[in-house]
């Protein structure tokens, strides 16, 4: 359903900071895939997601989503197909606005905004019902400012916003990296639950190998702007962290995985 073909991207070309981030990336996603994406820092994981979301545009190559070439679509146009959760809990919500106002913005993703009321009564009932599913007590705080919520609550809310209108593809960019381990697990569980319930296609970037193995039906490992390892189904279920480290060593020519990956 998503096809990335020969994607190249260089940041700061012709300067001392020139960096080739994506080096002829190819990827084919099937309907209902839940892919965890791992790789060292600078491997191009986040850039790949940002490329799909339209934050950056590829120098070369094409992005096709559901038979539609979206390579040149600006970010706000393709937003109607995508749900996104960011690494920074501040990124996904508007802090000075109420919980229900944030949800209302998300509920209208991909629709034309007019001069109708920003929130209607019927919507509120829907929001309360959805917030109850999060089990964080947010359903009684509809008119609280989002800035008052904790990082975990904000990420859970962003996740809900990203899936309130069923997206064709859900992009999770290290969405638990800024949370404490307990909250991170809760948000991960929640993501898994929402993806399963709505049978969404999703990509999740993570630095945590255990999580990468535990969640999803497919795992890809990136190194230097290409995919070096792609495994799914039975083979993925039988993976161990040691297998991944070995793969990583092979690819990087003995150079060892960074500390964060070993520690986690």
């Amino acid at each position: 359903m998503l096809t990335l073909t020969n994607i190249y991207k260089t940041f700061n070309p012709n300067t001392v900071n020139e960096k080739l981030v994506l080096n002829g990336l190819n990827l084919e996603l099937n309907d209902g895939d839940f892919v965890s994406v791992i790789g060292g820092n600078g491997a191009g994981k986040s850039t790949m997601l940002n490329m799909i979301a339209g934050v950056h545009f590829p120098d070369e190559g094409s992005i096709v989503l559901d038979h539609e070439d979206i390579t040149k679509f600006p970010e706000h146009i393709r937003a109607k197909y995508l749900g996104r959760v960011f690494q920074d809990p501040m990124m996904g919500t508007a802090a000075n606005m109420e919980i229900e106002e944030n949800l209302a913005l998300a509920y209208r993703r991909g629709k034309k905004r007019g001069l109708g009321w920003g929130i209607t009564k019927e919507e509120r009932a829907l929001y309360i019902e959805k917030l109850k599913m999060l089990d964080l007590g947010l359903e009684s705080r509809l008119s609280s400012k989002v800035g008052l919520l904790s990082g975990g609550q904000r990420q859970a809310l962003t996740l809900l916003m990203a899936t309130l209108k069923q997206p064709k593809l859900l992009l999770l960019d290290e969405h638990t990296a800024a949370l404490d381990p307990k909250t991170a697990n809760k948000v991960l569980e929640l993501s898994d639950q929402i993806i399963k319930e709505n049978s969404l296609t999703a990509m999740m970037v993570t630095h945590n190998m255990k999580n990468a193995i535990q969640y999803g039906n497919r795992l890809i490992m990136m190194y230097d702007g290409i995919i070096i390892f792609d495994v799914s189904g039975e083979a993925k279920r039988n993976l161990h962290v040691s297998d991944l480290l070995e793969k990583f060593e092979q690819a990087s020519g003995g150079e060892f995985a960074n500390d964060r990956m070993i520690l986690s």
Binding site: A79, A94, L105, R109, R113, L115, G116, I119
Partner: peptide, 27 residues
Amino acid sequence: FFGTEVGCCIRATGNNPAMVRAQGVNT
């Protein structure tokens, strides 16, 4: 006006433009 859909988008744009774009609005 700031209670309408467009008005809400303008308020959110002043708050967090990245989020507003992710919700499909031209900031």
